[in-house]
């Protein structure tokens, strides 16, 4: 996971249900990507993931929590080359 992504890409980290759904813990995606398009990009790769997993997830960029969408307004943040983006579903069991 700690390996650097190939040039021109960013690293996606999948946790919990996101890792289960994609079958991966991590993968590189091409940069740059507006964060507002992240979920659609993943949906095209993993049909159903948006509704079944992503809708309730927290998202971080370089270990900072970000709002992909707040108050109905899309974030204008852009994911850059070399960034690390994490998809963190709420885990409730214990």
């Amino acid at each position: 996971m700690s390996n650097k992504p190939p040039a021109g890409s960013f690293t996606l980290l999948y946790f919990a249900a996101a890792a289960t759904y994609t079958g991966k813990a991590t993968e590189p995606l091409p940069a740059s990507l507006p964060i507002s398009k992240l979920f659609d990009t993943l949906e095209s790769q993993y049909p159903g993931i948006k509704q079944k997993v992503l809708a309730s997830c927290a998202v971080t960029v370089n270990l900072d929590y970000v709002d992909v969408e707040e108050d109905g307004r899309a974030s204008d943040l852009v994911i850059r080359d070399g960034d690390e983006v994490a998809i963190i579903p709420p885990v409730s069991s214990g």
Partner: peptide, 10 residues
């Protein structure tokens, strides 16, 4: 942190 609950089936 988690304003939306996870879908129940998940």
């Amino acid at each position: 942190v988690f304003p939306k609950p996870p879908p129940p089936a998940s």
